[in-house]
């Protein structure tokens, strides 16, 4: 390699380095701003990710994370050897799939129906009322469920009796999923409808004109104009929900649990809490949690790829 080539190569590199220096000198304040929040992300997000290494170790407090002996895949084997593992996975999947199936169409139907209504006062009232429960905390929603379904004082207990369902739904393992999912729909349908309302408002009005000229009925306008118009939004929401299938929250399931419905209400998140924090088996709990997160990430990647192939829409 000759000196001439070297010099030619060095020049742009040199220039880049100078540019970087100038950028730093001029915008040092921007970099300074980043220091604190980035430190937060590292400490509370990335160090915990690294701590997952204890899933592959036999962790004990005295030796610490790095001093504890390696255990290979023992913790994962221990989890899957336990017959409860498959119950947990099944409970988690069934609960979120049920939630997906029930919770996905309702906000779309609500938004499409609201979009047809011309009476502004009625429209606003329905929107405001259905939106409100979104802001009620999980603790309160579960308390309300316990009260309205209480066999002794609940006003819905009688209504259920009318439909031939008896007594205490909260103590019935088979009713757990329905209670969980439909109370979720009750709480979030109004909120989830907003994004579809926005998409509907963005549809080109000339499409409605065209449909009108063709003599399309209202139902056909919904089918041929509204639904294709909100399809990209539907796909994005769908990906996000499927990507969260395994990430179903701890908060509500834990509150709705009682010894009687545990056979269906114990999900991976609540189990991790129990063996990890109550049982102090950190390594096993971390292994279960890691398994859950990885499955979840894989699902999200698969759904996103498939959706991009099929519909051209994806998250990235």
């Amino acid at each position: 390699m000759t000196a001439a080539v070297d010099a030619r190569r060095a020049t742009p590199r040199e220039r880049r380095r100078q540019a970087r220096g100038r950028n730093l000198r001029r915008h040092w304040q921007l970099y300074l701003m980043l220091v604190l929040p980035v430190a937060f992300l590292v400490v509370f997000q990335y160090i915990p990710m690294a701590n997952n290494v204890i899933a592959f170790k036999d962790y004990n407090v005295v030796a610490g994370i790095w001093g504890s002996p390696w255990a290979g895949l023992d913790n994962f084997e221990r989890f899957f050897a336990n017959p409860v593992a498959w119950d947990l996975i099944r409970n988690t999947l069934m609960l979120s799939l049920y939630g997906l199936l029930a919770g996905f169409p309702v906000p779309i139907i609500l938004a499409l129906a609201l979009n047809e209504v011309r009476a502004r006062f009625f429209k606003r009232t329905v929107q405001m009322v259905t939106y409100a429960p979104y802001f009620i905390s999980t603790v309160i929603v579960v308390s309300m469920l316990i009260l309205v379904f209480s066999p002794r004082i609940g006003f819905l207990t009688e209504a259920l009796g009318f439909f031939g369902m008896d007594g205490n739904v909260l103590a019935d393992p088979d009713a757990f999923r329905s209670v969980y999912v439909w109370s979720d729909v009750w709480q979030t349908a109004g909120y989830s409808a907003i994004i579809y309302m926005a998409a509907l408002a963005g549809i080109d009005p000339s499409l409605y004109e065209a449909a009108r000229l063709d003599g399309a009925s209202r139902l056909r306008k919904i089918w041929h104009v509204d639904l294709p118009g909100i399809a990209p939004t539907v796909v994005v929401v769908m990906i996000l929900s499927v990507g969260n299938v395994m990430a179903i929250g701890f908060e509500k399931a834990f509150l709705l649990q009682n010894p009687l419905n545990l056979s269906q209400s114990e999900i991976i998140a609540t189990y991790t809490y129990k063996i990890g924090l109550l049982g102090a088996d950190f390594s096993l709990a971390a292994a279960v949690g890691l398994f859950n997160s990885v499955i979840n990430l894989i699902l999200l990647l698969i759904v996103n790829t498939v959706s991009k192939r099929v519909t051209g829409n994806g998250l990235w």
Partner: peptide, 22 residues
């Protein structure tokens, strides 16, 4: 890189026990 670092925390989290340890 920074934006990727923020977005990644939406896709993957450390989990209950590892965060508790921190």
């Amino acid at each position: 890189v920074f934006i990727g670092g923020v977005l990644f925390t939406m896709l993957f989290s450390g989990g209950l026990i590892p965060t508790y340890m921190v």
